[in-house]
Amino acid sequence: MNPILFWSIAVFVVIAALMVVRLPNIFHAGLSLIATFGGVAAVYAMLDAHFLAAVQVLIYVGAISVILMFAVMLTQHLAQREVRGSMSRHVSGALVAGLFGLFAVIIVNTQQWPSGGLPFKYLQAGDIGKLFLDKNAFLVPFEMVAILLLVALVGAVMVARKEGDR
């Protein structure tokens, strides 16, 4: 993996993530979030997980971000107002994030992670599909997630309905 490429993308992602919490204008913060997602997709692509990278862009950038930005744009007065946290908030936030980062690095580097089987490089989209439908692999979680999404969808429609009759 090309180190220059990796480090530049990594720096980009971290800066974009920082800007999400630091930028005063909410719309710009939303755009930074989209940039973060895009950077993560680039990292996936560098790890040869092409399918995951494409799906990351399709779902996160193409769907979830759009919903987020819709919400930002429709509550217009909120977006005009600039959000500035106080200095103490920033300091405590940085402290917590730093501690979490430290623990994450320690845990990831000292644990023995079990190896998953096939090297990631050779896992095609078709293989992922087969894993989803294999009852010894991920079938049950797949179906549970599907039901969960359906419940969320129906719930959202019901909540929206109650607020007005159109």
Binding site: H50, A54, V55, V57, L58, V61, G62, A63, V66, M69
Partner: peptide
């Protein structure tokens, strides 16, 4: 990939 890229246009 094609579908992913067309969703960037939406943004």
């Amino acid at each position: 990939y094609l579908l992913a890229v067309s969703s960037i246009a939406v943004l």
